[in-house]
């Protein structure tokens, strides 16, 4: 009886341990082994020493894919925060139909990224796309949303913002509700206007939410894949090649398993480093 009680917790957590061994510990270990090999899965593995690492540091496309991912984040995160905060601020007022508006903003969040991407590919179309028809209608002219290498990544970042912003609106709404109303009342007495109240009270109070949004969008941005996969295939001129798309291409298109594993490992370190740095900033701020 005592014995049984002792085993029981282990029985309960055993599925996790098995899963951890099979799908986390072993893969990570194997991944490291793979980085020293050349392997196309159909022929035997071949030990190549540090070749994959040397190749990685000389691989312009991979370096480009990382800088593309960073460009994406630099556009996406501030845009996301500004739009989400703005709309959350509005929804936080006493307005009619608040639930309906919130529901509308949230709609793209629940829909698959595949749907959103197929849809926006049409909106971004050059000659008959809705956006360009609108722009030519008001006399601005056509823009190569997905075909101009200087613009394509920004277009994808805007689309990603459109897709995710609803979630962050809700997160900010939660954050805004934690701000005590007395603060605003006190500010009203002092005759502060809307903007002053926003910058002096709201912004500092919801700092934690902002940081959470930054981290969540960073992790999301680092896994950017399906959007460029469907919309641009990583082009034009590799300007939308994301790191995950490139790893996918090396692994499942050319079957360079060893090299793809090396890219994955290296990229994972970059992600961890960036997230660590962000966390440092948060802790310093509090």
């Amino acid at each position: 009886m005592i014995n049984k009680k002792k085993i029981l917790p282990y029985l309960l957590v055993s599925p996790y341990l098995v899963h951890f061994m099979l799908f986390v510990a072993f893969p990570v270990g194997f991944s490291i082994v793979l980085t020293f090999h050349k392997w196309n899965i159909i022929s035997p593995m071949e030990f190549t020493g540090l070749n994959n690492y040397i190749r990685l540091f000389n691989d312009k496309t991979f370096i480009r894919s990382i800088s593309n991912t960073l460009i994406f984040l630099v556009i996406h995160i501030p845009l996301q925060i500004i739009v989400a905060l703005f709309l959350a601020e509005i929804l936080n007022q006493k307005i009619k139909l608040r639930g309906a508006f919130r529901g509308a903003f949230f709609l793209p969040v629940i829909v698959s990224g595949v749907v959103v991407t197929i849809l926006w590919q049409q909106l971004y179309g050059y000659d008959t796309g809705l956006l360009n028809r609108l722009l030519t209608g008001i006399g601005i002219g056509k823009i190569g949303w997905l075909t101009d290498p200087n613009i394509a990544m920004a277009s994808i970042a805007v689309m990603a913002t459109w897709k995710n912003v609803g979630l962050y609106i809700v997160l900010f709404l939660v954050g805004l509700q934690t701000v005590p109303t007395q603060y605003y009342e006190a500010a009203d007495l002092e005759g502060a206007n809307h903007l002053q109240k926003f910058f002096r009270i709201t912004l500092p109070m919801i700092n934690p939410t902002i940081f959470m949004v930054v981290i969540l969008s960073t992790i999301g941005g680092f896994s950017l894949f399906i959007e460029p996969y469907i919309m641009t295939g990583g082009g034009p001129l590799n300007s939308t090649m994301s790191a995950v798309l490139y790893i996918y291409k090396q692994g499942f298109f050319y079957y360079h398993m060893g090299y793809a594993a090396t890219l994955g490992l290296f990229f994972a370190f970059i992600i961890l480093a960036v997230v660590m740095i962000q966390k440092k900033f948060i802790e310093k701020d509090h």
């Binding site: 996790y16 990570v28 899965i41 994955g264 990229f267």
Partner: peptide
């Protein structure tokens, strides 16, 4: 360990998981 695996990016295990 669970907390640690949450911080682990999936990019690292993608290829070996496929091989498994």
């Amino acid at each position: 360990v669970i907390i640690f695996t949450m911080t682990l990016p999936f990019q690292i295990t993608l290829i070996p998981q496929y091989i498994i």
